[in-house]
Write a protein that binds this DNA or RNA. Structure first.
Lengths: 167, 167
DNA sequence: TGTAGCATGTAAGCCGTTACATGATTGA
DNA sequence: TCAATCATGTAACGGCTTACATGCTACA
């Protein structure tokens, strides 16, 4: 794949479980991997274009496999701007918190639809069995997130004045 | 609070929804906030120790409130090393994937117990109503995570040779 | 002929980490 | 008296971002 294609692939699937890397990072990382011999590059394109097409090397595949099965996975890192704001809900009004949660459910629904589309494109394709499992994982996460946020919204105090104290 | 106390607080609650910052970051960030006038520092301690105790300033509180209610929260960022490895499950054996998921459920249970303890310490304390809501959010997440991982484990192909192809 | 998409990079900077470095207080 | 905990910082570096910069190809 070219760097550009790697970026497209990452935007399609990787971003749900990791980060969608910037183009600049894709290119610099690919260059580092090539230096380390973990991928090989070839210049391609009819008419001698300077597109670089990368392929994983046997060494790279071995290292990837080793990383995958031997190294201990870290615990997932979550950075949740909505939960972070809710944590300090007491400095503002319950209504502000409620509105924020409602908005969040909306964007959650959009994300869910995007991942659903990915999941459908993976159906009945044995070569994508693992990506399909992971997509289902993501969909389950979004479903549970929507359910708990709905519940939390209801548990928020009814509208009255404004913020109480915190410590 | 002192920087040290801020760090302890972050380790106790913030780490479930964000990151547990390194001590060094707590101190440098506190210094930046003090420079910006968003917190005020006072030297304290019997006998003239040089402990710095910080307090949020009126300006800081106003800015925090503004950030909380006015700024649009980003969508949560998840970095999930287990999902990332599972995504490429086809380069190794289903058994390796199964073992990884089993391990993950174990550490998930530990985390869940830790957050449960925090949640219990927050019970029946109206001043911690919002932190309690957020703790319940986290507990719901861990519960759903455990359920879906158990299900995915079962959907993994039964043991046979080793890895198939991927693309 | 112009614009959207394909394609590749460099530079500066932010957020967060680990490693390094220091010192006071409490209590076994 | 020694170890754990409280307490504060600096330096180097990693991963990732935004801004900046360039040029080709397909097609409306």
């Amino acid at each position: 794949m070219t760097g550009y294609e790697v970026k497209q692939r990452a935007d399609r699937t990787l971003r749900f479980y990791w980060v969608a890397p910037a183009m600049s990072q894709v290119y610099s990382e690919l260059a580092r991997l090539a230096d380390a011999g973990l991928v090989t590059a070839s210049l391609v394109g009819p008419g001698g274009r300077r597109d670089r097409r990368y392929r994983i090397s046997p060494d790279g595949l071995a290292r990837l496999r080793e990383w995958q099965t031997t190294s201990e996975p870290e615990f997932p890192i979550l950075k949740h701007p909505v939960a972070l704001r809710l944590l300090m809900g007491s400095i503002s009004s319950p209504d502000a918190a409620r509105a924020m949660l409602t908005d969040y459910r909306r964007t959650l629904a959009e994300r869910r639809a995007e991942l659903s589309a990915v999941r459908e494109s993976l159906a009945d394709r044995p070569e994508f069995a693992y990506p399909a499992l992971v997509a289902d994982w993501g969909l389950a996460y979004y479903a549970s997130e929507d359910a708990i946020v709905a519940e939390l919204s209801e548990r928020l105090p009814a509208a009255d004045g404004s913020g109480a104290s915190d410590s």
